[in-house]
Design a protein around this nucleic acid. Structure first.
Length: 566
RNA sequence: CGGGGCGUAGCGCAGUUUGGUCAGCGCGCCUGCCUUGGGAGCAGGAGGUCGGCGGUUCAAAUCCGCCCGCCCCGACCA
């Protein structure tokens, strides 16, 4: 491709809309333009990268037994009613009506439509397992699109759905996908970490996210430097603590005027935050529940929701709190609390002589003890794990990190197959629901994640495997153009993808743009080394550079590409 | 949805407080000359309903009202 006839609009300055490196660089290097919030146009360079990522995905999915299909993006409401997700998805779903008033959505994901397809076609255990996938646009009207294409409202995603006879089959499919994901991301040049995760609204129990460690990441994870434990904090477990064996002291009431927050109570009574008990009231499915957590800990709402078996969980408003506890916000406590389920974190359960609100304005109770002063409905692990906490597997201190979730694999079970009646007959003629899994990869997000991991102050540094071109030829003046064209033809005929900067620009401009775009191999043709009969080769990564005669270039380039696993 | 910020030429911005030679600057773009190893120089030029609508005023980019769009933090989220 020649730059004079290419659509590669590079910018000298960063548009104000961008904040993070991948977004800034994609705009500046001419890969991306915004159409609306969270909706983007992918320019030719992006398209080349995306195709390569998708090709890698296809190869690995096919190798694992997947078959590619193309599914509707406009999907009828009925299917979503059947699984209950027409309501569950809420405002995040783009909805539309046809001219007759029939309801549709733009598919945010494709479980329903795929399950419905399989339901209609698959009858026998002989047809299972079946692994179907698609790579298409998906639509989610995110509350807050951000970070360029990392959280867009329209994005490309690969989803594979597995249909198995039973849990054992599902586990095999899951393993295949888990391993394929590792290969896909490493082939894309990404360092990812699989972490235990929460399955949220999609359902199912076992799930892992594949996370790219990056400061701008929205996923917060913890991992153990000593063993293989790694989890999203939404899911990360806490080690149960040994019960504090201190002798129980008599319950006492203390006057605590205006002390509502943990800090205020802690300093007013001169008691460390870890001895305080936070009582957080939540509304869930019409019921009020109290979550008890140590003063120095944070509640993990995802864990609490899971324990309650609900998706609906919101903090109680002030009025409800007053009504339920008889005291304003800041003075709630478990002692004497009526008609409220008490979910007690194991950290609080282990606490002796804690301090809690007295359910009375300006008063707290000292020496509160579970079992003596109040009875829990349930003791559970409901707190948010953070860096420094002990690893649940080996006890070493966990490390915290942020990351971009580029893929997630789920064991779904039979939620969708039952709702949509995707049953099959087993060897004994018995009708059973298929056991499903689903496995997603954010393709456009993966591209951004690669840039987050591979860039410097001058621009992008593409891994060879997904670079828009392998080689960037930069002739510095008119005199060098003929040789550049010759090399271009030679390399191209060897199947090498070459971008030729044939523009009438000064050398500095060409170098700056080459660095920005980030093609792995740069060939500079200039009078300086041409006088020795040589051209210059340089890797964008900075790992290697050298000069050689033009007739040796092709072989060297092929060698470089091969060594980079392109 | 709450909080904060922004909207003036393709991009980055000044001008808005205090209404009146304010339609401006840098980059980019076009033409010519010149130059050619890290975003050159000179000369000339094109390009803007100042986000939109309404209001106040002799006069509005500037003041007031409503609306739209965009970004950041939070809530939210396979």
């Amino acid at each position: 491709m020649r730059m004079t006839s290419s659509f590669i609009p590079t910018l000298r300055e960063t548009p104000a809309e961008a904040e993070i490196p991948s977004h800034k660089l994609m705009l500046r290097a001419g890969f991306l333009r915004r159409a609306a919030a969270g909706i983007y146009t992918y320019l030719p360079l992006s398209q080349r990268v995306l195709k390569k990522i998708m090709q890698i995905i296809r190869e690995e999915m096919d190798a694992a037994g997947g078959q590619e299909i193309l599914l509707p993006i406009v999907q009828p409401a009925e299917l979503w009613h059947a699984t209950g997700r027409w309501a569950d998805y809420g405002d995040e779903m783009f909805r539309l009506k046809d001219r007759h008033g029939r309801e549709f959505c733009l598919g945010p994901t494709h479980e329903e439509i795929t399950t419905s397809l399989v339901q209609g076609e698959v009858r026998s255990y002989r047809q299972l397992p079946l692994l179907l996938y698609q790579i298409q646009n998906k639509y989610r009207d995110e509350v807050r699109p951000r970070f360029g294409i990392i959280r867009g409202r329209e994005f490309i995603m690969k989803d594979l759905y597995s249909f198995d006879q039973d849990q054992r089959g599902l586990e095999e499919s899951y393993q295949k996908m888990y391993q394929a994901y590792g290969r896909i991301f490493s082939r894309c040049g990404l360092e990812t970490r699989p972490v235990l995760a929460d399955s949220g609204a999609i359902g199912g129990n076992v799930t892992h996210e594949f996370v790219v460690l990056a400061d701008c990441g929205e996923a917060i994870i913890v991992y153990c430097p000593e063993c293989d434990y790694a989890a999203n904090v939404e899911r990360a477990e806490c080690r149960p603590q040994p019960k504090d064996g201190t002798e129980l002291l008599p319950l006492e009431k203390a006057f605590t005027p205006g002390a509502k927050t943990i800090e205020q109570v802690s300093s007013f009574l001169d008691v460390a935050p870890e001895r305080l008990i936070k009582t957080l009231l939540y509304k869930s499915d019409g019921e009020v529940v109290a979550a008890l957590i140590r003063g120095d800990h944070e509640l993990n709402e995802v864990k609490l929701a899971r324990i309650l078996g609900t998706l609906e969980l919101e903090p109680a408003d002030e009025e409800t709190i007053l009504q339920v506890t008889g005291a304003p916000v800041g003075f709630c406590g478990p002692v004497g609390l009526k008609n409220v389920r008490l979910i007690v974190d194991q950290g609080v359960a282990a606490l002796a002589n804690g301090v809690a609100g007295a359910n009375e304005e300006d008063a707290h109770l000292l020496n509160v003890n579970m079992g003596r002063d109040y009875e829990p409905d349930l003791v559970a692990d409901i707190r948010l794990v953070k860096g420094g906490d002990p690893c649940p597997q080996c006890g070493n201190a966990l490390l915290g990190a942020r990351g971009i979730e580029v893929g997630q694999v789920f064991q779904l079970g039979t939620k969708y197959s039952e709702a949509l009646r995707a049953y099959y007959l087993d060897e004994n003629g018995e009708e059973k629901p298929m056991v499903m899994g689903c496995y997603g990869i954010g393709v456009t997000r993966t591209m951004a994640a690669v840039i987050e991991q591979h860039h410097d102050e001058h621009g992008i540094i593409w891994p060879m495997s997904i670079a828009p071109f392998h080689v960037h030829i930069v002739p510095l003046g008119d005199k060098e153009l003929a040789l550049a064209e010759e090399l271009y033809d030679q390399l191209t005929s060897c199947g090498i993808e070459v971008l030729l900067d044939d523009r009438d620009e000064r050398p500095g401009v060409k170098f700056k743009d080459a660095d920005l775009i980030g093609i792995p191999i740069r060939i500079t043709i200039g009078s300086r080394s041409l006088s020795e009969g040589k051209v210059e080769l340089k890797l964008r990564s900075g790992d290697w550079e050298g000069k050689l005669p033009p007739d040796e270039v092709c072989a060297k380039v092929q060698e470089l590409i091969a060594s980079k696993g392109a």
